[in-house]
Amino acid sequence: MNYFLLMTTRTNKFDSNDIQGHYDHLEKLKKEELLEMYGPFSDATGGAYLIKAASLDEATKIGNSDPLIQNGSSTLTIKEWLLR
């Protein structure tokens, strides 16, 4: 498994009603033992979460299934992170 950092950035369409779905998504990843850590940015522009996935394609599918992304509340940037 590889590590991927998924960064969300709020858009001008941000809807706070999507936050609960986002946390539900993270809880599901936690139960599947894919989520390592997560949290919002201090400037309230978005947040990030670190996951384990077999590939960039898998990480992208996981990220795109987040309600924040599906509903247009945030954009997604994914980076494979070579942790040491």
Rank of each mutant, 00 (worst) to 15 (best):
L35R: 02
D66Q: 07
I69V: 14
L76G: 03
A48G: 15
A54Q: 14
A48H: 06
I51L: 05
K61S: 09
D66E: 05
I51C: 01
L68P: 00
D43S: 07
F41H: 11
A59W: 00
T75V: 08
K61W: 02
A59H: 01
K61A: 15
A53C: 12
T11D: 02
L26A: 06
R10V: 01
L6S: 11
S74H: 10
D43K: 03
A59N: 00
K61V: 05
F4K: 01
G63K: 03
G21P: 06
Y23S: 07
K52Y: 09
M7V: 13
T8I: 14
L5P: 00
T11M: 08
L35G: 11
I51S: 01
F41V: 08
K79T: 14
Q70S: 13
P40M: 01
Q20H: 04
S42P: 02
H22M: 06
L35D: 12
K13T: 11
L56A: 09
Y23C: 01
T77W: 00
L83T: 13
R10I: 00
Y23A: 04
M7E: 15
G39I: 07
D24E: 15
D43E: 14
A54I: 10
Q70T: 03
L5C: 12
M37N: 12
G63T: 02
S65T: 11
E80A: 01
K28D: 14
G39S: 12
I51M: 04
L76C: 07
K31R: 12
T60N: 13
A54R: 10
K79Y: 04
M7C: 10
S42A: 12
N12W: 00
E32A: 15
Q20R: 11
A59S: 07
I69P: 09
A54H: 13
G46N: 08
